Simulated assay, not measured.
Amino acid sequence: MSTLPGRRRGPSKGDRREQAILETARVLLARKPLADITIDELAAGAEISRSSFYFYFDSKIAVVVALLHGITGELGRDAGPWLDGTGPDAGALRQALTSLAVLWRDQGRLLAGALAAAPGCPPLAQWRDGMRAAHVDRLAARIERDRAAGLAPDGPAPRVLAGLIDDLRTAALAGASDPEELVGDLVTVELRMLYGDFGVSHSAG
């Protein structure tokens, strides 16, 4: 059975002390940046010793990776109708972006901290690259379908355009004080990047 990067073999996933470490990390991340959290704080919050902490995780980053894997499914929640659809469907895009914005509202410090640390941290970089690739692959396929059907204009290579959209979306949500307020603007911007004036004025309202 595979284990998450940085996690040591040991008690079952449902072990209460492991869950207590993860919950402590969530609470601390809601109050301060990842860089300011210490192993001692994580251990104290879980009511275990520092040495006991290392029985469950080999680093602070390993705890963050575990939290990220726990919300990975939520990052793509409600995106199916948009990514698997065709044409400038503002309603489906809005649904996908609204779910993503709510997650950023609730888990923004965790996500922003992970993205900031990713360039110098292979486990976090691997997580981010995997999430980005999954979205870019599906969005690029959608762009190809729409162009082939005459529903979208020619432009940058589908994977290039999909990557630009993913990076723009992530940067906007990471920098927003209220991610949900950005949804309407992101819908308009993304539709125009994909379709130009192909029905966007009628679909984005």
Rank of each mutant, 00 (worst) to 15 (best):
I37L: 10
T86A: 13
I61Q: 13
W82C: 03
L42R: 12
I71K: 06
R105F: 08
G91V: 15
R132S: 12
G91H: 08
P156D: 15
L110C: 11
P122Y: 04
L111Y: 03
P158E: 00
G120P: 06
H69E: 14
S99A: 14
R147S: 01
A125Y: 05
P81A: 06
R159P: 02
L139Q: 07
D78S: 13
R138V: 05
I39G: 01
R147K: 08
L93Q: 03
P156M: 15
I71V: 15
V65F: 00
Q95L: 14
G130K: 02
A101Y: 02
P88Y: 07
A79I: 05
L93G: 05
L83W: 07
G120R: 06
V102W: 07
R31T: 14
A79V: 12
R77S: 14
A157Q: 13
G80M: 13
M131D: 09
R128W: 07
K60E: 05
Q107Y: 09
A44Y: 02
G70R: 01
L111H: 10
E47I: 04
I39N: 09
E41A: 13
F57I: 10
T98V: 12
G120L: 08
I71H: 01
R50E: 06
A149N: 10
Y54K: 03
G85W: 03
G155I: 11
D137A: 04
L100C: 06
D137W: 01
D129P: 00
F53K: 07
I61A: 05
R132F: 06
R94V: 11
V160Q: 14
S99P: 02
G70D: 06
E74T: 04
Q126Y: 07
A157T: 11
A157I: 09
A140T: 03
G76F: 12
A118F: 08
I143Y: 00
D58Q: 11
R109N: 09
L68N: 04
A112I: 11
I48H: 00
W127Y: 14
L75T: 15
L68K: 04
I39F: 03
T72L: 10
I48Y: 12
T38P: 02
G80D: 15
G85A: 08
D84H: 09
A140E: 00
P119V: 10
K32V: 07
P158K: 02
L110V: 07
G150C: 07
A149Q: 08
P33S: 05
G80K: 15
G150S: 13
A118E: 07
F57N: 01
I61F: 08
R145I: 09
S99F: 00
L111S: 10
Q126M: 03
D154T: 14
L100H: 04
R94F: 02
S49P: 01
R109C: 13
D58C: 06
P123F: 05
A117L: 11
H69M: 01
D129R: 13
W104P: 00
D58Y: 00
A92I: 04
G80E: 15
E41M: 09
